[in-house]
Nucleic acid binder design. Structure first.
Length: 373
RNA sequence: GCCCUGGUAGUAUAGCUCGGUCUAGUAUAGACGGCUGUCGCCCGUCCGACCCGGGUUCAAAUCCCGGCCAGGGCGCCA
């Protein structure tokens, strides 16, 4: 047995039979005096990275040996926080009558235009990976009134940044008989609740990560797009009205508003076709974004529930109403007014863990250049 | 898609500006030994690297070109 104990190496999987005793000599205050040792799995040395964490490896090296990387306390802490955040999200939404649903990942045509889709071969048809559950969740509120979905979606964007992925997890809700202000309240309360749950339930993990955050107070600040433009102008950043706000401008905003805030009343043309234009001024819509510092955490809005208007907006976006006939048909069945939003889960986890690179908070990230492991 | 930066042992880095004692330094990991009832304690010895191809030169880790790979930024988007 001594010989066997002598042959043990870092990362071996072993079974030990013996007597457990208290001791002051070990970090955990216990020791096992073995009567039998079994080697269950051996490890080939040298390992591709230092599991003790004394010599930190670069993100690329770590992702190539991700399961070993996950053995590090710091890495494990991130995903335990994610677990608690998801648990809290489900509890919060279920408590408020939202029903968890699952919509298709394989779809026949583009759901929103905008973001690029990954094509897939579906028997004798061309199909795509879903970029969002948007149209399906809207349809489902006719039956369930309030729904939510937590799942992976796909964007074939060429983005190469610390906050974009090709495959990401979206936390989506949709609610009937609701408008933007209603679902904004749900959103800010959810964020507060999740922050509270993580802060309370993940003290050890946050300590490992050496990261702290304050549970935000609600309501979050609300700024209109026009107010934001004025504020940026004051900082010497010029954004022409109607344009999306460029990333460098968001970074400036993040310095002025270092926590959560909403941006509302966006120009209609800068948002998706299904966002409702305001009655009194159709150039502006009922869409909103939830920001955390300079990062867009979530976006949502009041949806169009008039079929005619929806067709008009589709056409204005250069989309063909025929490709949306199954979706449009639903609007003939008594579609109630509704609103919803979507949170980029990974971005929320970045906020909760202090990680600066979105790949840190995904077990096996997929980005423009990474398809393995 | 455009732009910038970088590729030195298993890992992380020094060296590159101003080419030559670089037979490439250091840390950590690994092997072996010592020490301590244990240790992601300490000490010692050892092992191990210039991304690929071409060019310039008497001489290239170092300069130039191409490729590949990686990181980041922008646009787009969550």
């Amino acid at each position: 047995m001594i010989e066997k104990a002598d042959s043990l190496q870092t990362q071996f999987s072993i079974g030990v039979k013996g007597t457990v005793r208290r001791t002051e000599k070990t970090p955990r205050g216990i020791e096992i005096v073995p009567s039998e040792i079994r080697i269950l799995g051996i490890a080939q040395h040298p390992l591709p990275l230092d599991v003790t964490g004394r010599t930190p490896a670069e993100i690329d090296t770590r992702l190539n040996a991700r399961v070993l990387d996950l053995r590090r306390d710091e890495c494990g802490a991130v995903f335990r926080i994610e677990h608690v955040a998801l648990e809290a999200t489900r509890a919060f939404l279920s408590e408020r009558g939202f029903v968890e649903v699952h919509t298709p990942r394989i779809i026949a045509s583009a759901t929103e235009g905008g973001a690029a889709l990954f094509p897939v071969t579906y028997f004798e048809h061309d199909a795509f990976l879903a970029q969002s559950p948007q149209l399906y969740k809207e349809q489902l509120i006719m039956s369930f009134e309030k729904v939510f979905e937590i799942g992976s979606f796909f964007r074939a964007e060429e983005s190469h940044t610390r906050r974009h992925l090709s495959e990401f997890i979206s936390v989506d809700i949709e609610e009937a008989f609701a408008a933007a202000p209603d679902v904004m309240k749900v959103l800010e309360k959810l964020v507060r609740y999740v922050c509270g749950a993580v802060k309370k339930g993940c003290q050890r993990e946050l300590e490992i990560l050496k990261y702290r955050f304050d549970v935000p107070r609600t309501p979050f600040k609300r700024f209109t797009y026009d107010e934001i433009l004025k504020e940026l102008d004051g900082e010497g950043v010029d954004v022409p009205w109607g344009e999306d706000i460029p990333t460098p401008a968001f970074r400036t905003l993040g310095k002025i508003h270092p926590y959560f805030y909403f941006i509302t009343d966006w120009p209609t043309k800068s948002k998706a076709f299904y966002i409702n234009p305001q009655d009194e001024n159709p150039k502006v819509c009922e869409g909103f974004d939830l920001m955390w510092q300079w990062v867009e955490l979530a976006s949502g809005g009041t949806r169009i529930h008039s079929k005619d208007l929806l067709i008009k907006r589709l056409t204005e976006h250069g989309l063909h109403p025929e490709s949306f006939k199954f979706h449009l048909k639903v609007f003939d069945y008594g579609m109630p007014p509704h609103a919803g939003w979507a949170i980029g889960l990974e971005r929320l986890i970045m906020m909760l863990t202090g990680k600066k690179n979105i790949r840190e908070v995904v077990l096996f990230p997929r980005d423009r250049y990474r398809l393995t492991p």
